[in-house]
Amino acid sequence: MKQPLIGSYSQDDCLFLLKEIEPDFYTVEHKEKLIQSGKLHYSQMVSQESKPSDEYEQLFLSLMKKYKQQLATEILQLSHLIAEKIQQPVCVVSLVRAGTPIGVLVNRALNQFSEFDSVHYSISIVRDKGIDINGLDYLLNDLNIPPESIVFIDGWTAKGVITKELKAAIQDYNQQHNVAMSDDLYVVSDIGGTADHSVTLDDYIIPSALMNSTVSGLISRSVINEQIHEDDFHGCISYQHLQEYDYSNWFVDQVSACFEQQQYKAPVLITSEQRNTRYQQTQQYIKKLMQDFQVSDINRVKPGIAEATRVMLRRVPDLLLVKDKLNPNIAHLIRIANEKGIKITELDDMPFGACALIKDVR
């Protein structure tokens, strides 16, 4: 029988529905060329990760100090929303890996404050490839988890690519297996207006977005290459060499230490009209950016502070667009851009705090 993977979290906090594979690392530049030329899909490759610089680490710590209470309050509100909606013991299924630390926190909040028990698994979902079917089979068939108790969680939305991927995959799975799993997506921050449930539409920095594996259980993002066989979970690399720099447990402990009973309540409801307005704003502005900066591939446009952060850390950035250079939420982006010699352009009409354009390396 397949067994979930234990990252650097405790088993009570998170089990990964992933298979550890042998690393075959690509440089960021080589990976970008292969992705853009269409020779390999981004999910087939992974890069080595190194420890963050001392300055960057200090920035992460200072942003944690500033935003951990806000994030804790929003996690409690999201958890309340989930308990109200599900009305039975919950199986939190976070999307590897931006969703993973958020899933850990939601799981803790549900167990601490709701009347229902909760368990947490982290599953792979990949653009153009869908969700890990073997992961869903494992939950429903091996663990006998009721499909109605499954709740999908991510950290934030941007363009809505993963939202669409999730909905298509779950609808397909339900049809093929004759089950009624909800394809609803729950996130903290729905800046793209594409999630079903969120606490805010604001584009602010969720501190876990600053780090890679060192805030996600020392696990890489998911990989689907020749080492993954038909019955396997999607793959991942374990970054054990970063063990002494691992903030995964510290991050969730710091945020959950801020949980307070009186904050476990329903968030201010975001209406479908507000969400739709945000969706239209985001989509229209992305089109405008593509025209203004002559970008032909939408996959090279990454709106929102969190997505821009990932581009600056993991891809080959071409340009950093910001709404306001003095916004404290983007201090880390300004720093990385300056370190890498990336041009920064201010656009005060942007509906989000930042946007990164990936370089055309073909």
Rank of each mutant, 00 (worst) to 15 (best):
K68S: 00
Q69D: 14
Q69L: 14
Q69C: 13
Q70L: 15
T73A: 07
T73V: 04
E74N: 09
L76F: 00
Q77H: 11
Q77R: 12
L78M: 05
L78A: 02
L78V: 07
S79K: 05
L81K: 14
L81F: 05
L81T: 10
A83R: 07
A83M: 01
E84I: 02
E84K: 14
K85T: 12
I86S: 01
Q87I: 01
Q88K: 13
Q88R: 14
Q88C: 11
P89Q: 03
P89W: 05
P89H: 03
V90Y: 09
C91S: 15
C91N: 15
C91T: 15
V92H: 02
V92F: 08
V93I: 02
S94P: 03
L95S: 08
L95G: 04
V96D: 13
R97H: 04
A98M: 05
A98H: 06
G99D: 09
G99F: 09
G99M: 09
T100Q: 06
T100Y: 02
T100G: 01
P101V: 10
P101Q: 11
P101D: 12
I102L: 14
G103R: 08
G103D: 10
V104K: 08
L105F: 03
L105M: 13
L105K: 03
V106E: 03
V106Y: 06
N107L: 09
N107S: 12
N107A: 12
N107V: 12
N107M: 10
R108G: 03
R108L: 03
A109V: 11
A109P: 08
A109D: 10
A109C: 10
L110H: 00
L110K: 04
L110Y: 00
N111T: 07
N111M: 01
N111I: 00
Q112P: 09
Q112S: 12
Q112G: 04
Q112N: 14
S114W: 00
S114H: 01
S114K: 01
E115G: 14
E115M: 12
E115Y: 02
E115Q: 15
F116D: 04
